[in-house]
Design a protein around this nucleic acid. Sequence first.
DNA 1: CTTTTACTGCAACTCGATTGCAAAGATTAC
DNA 2: GTAATCTTTGCAATCGAGTTGCAGTAAAAG
Lengths: 136, 136
Amino acid sequence: MQTEEEILKIKKVKNTAVRTVVLRHLLSQEKAQSLKDIENALAYTDRSSIFRTLKTFEENKVIHSIEDGSGMTKYAVCAKGCNCDPKDLHYHFYCTNCDKTFCLFDVPIPKIQLPENFKLQQANMVVKGLCDNCNK
Amino acid sequence: MQTEEEILKIKKVKNTAVRTVVLRHLLSQEKAQSLKDIENALAYTDRSSIFRTLKTFEENKVIHSIEDGSGMTKYAVCAKGCNCDPKDLHYHFYCTNCDKTFCLFDVPIPKIQLPENFKLQQANMVVKGLCDNCNK
DNA sequence: CTTTTACTGCAACTCGATTGCAAAGATTAC
DNA sequence: GTAATCTTTGCAATCGAGTTGCAGTAAAAG
């Protein structure tokens, strides 16, 4: 596992106090985090600072965002070597019971055969259901 | 193509003036519509009435909603026989240039091999890029 | 050390989504 | 048919996630 400092250095994002704590928090969580999740976890950091930090991280491919249909955008740290290209796509799993969103890095995404002359740039693939913990 | 009345009858939704015009509008559009799209198209119908109509339609599987990442939920009429089960899944294509969202009924969705003990209920699969009209 | 640029915190604001309430319309009971 | 009941509709207000302006602070450049 890389440290926050190493990740920021690799992605050429200047290190600051807010950026370090936000990234540390994201790394410490198994599920993708919303702005509110982060805000609640970091009591002394301002919402707009976290918000701008997330934007900066996203622009520089430190994290990626997920629209899981919960009404709040979630964020998760990109896997090592990820460039957020279509080739880096993975499914996200949204548990309708516990409300958590996971990255399914290990489930391959098949090639999508788009209609004639359509160009793939990105995708947001959210699978919804029950996670192993809630499916009992 | 079925009429609005036929669809509502099949889905056991009582027919009203608002429901007819909302469904008629959705049927007339090739792209999925947001609440605002519908509101703009139906000048004399109240937003909250359209909103509640969409909720009713969704509950009764008349339409399905799509989170395409544009910030506004879009709605499209379900295909004939659709029960909004996983088997009725299809990709949605969001054009990053013209901002339209289409249902890709003809692109098959491969079986997703979820991790052990996860249960699939639904999915929101949005592919983003350029549509044929914008890819020139 | 001074100037310039970037980051942070606060408060205000935007806008899509949602709800409370009363009036209007439809349905059921008598 | 009429009264009582339930549903739908329109208006206005509210909620909440996301976003921005601005001034103060910190860091980098000269």
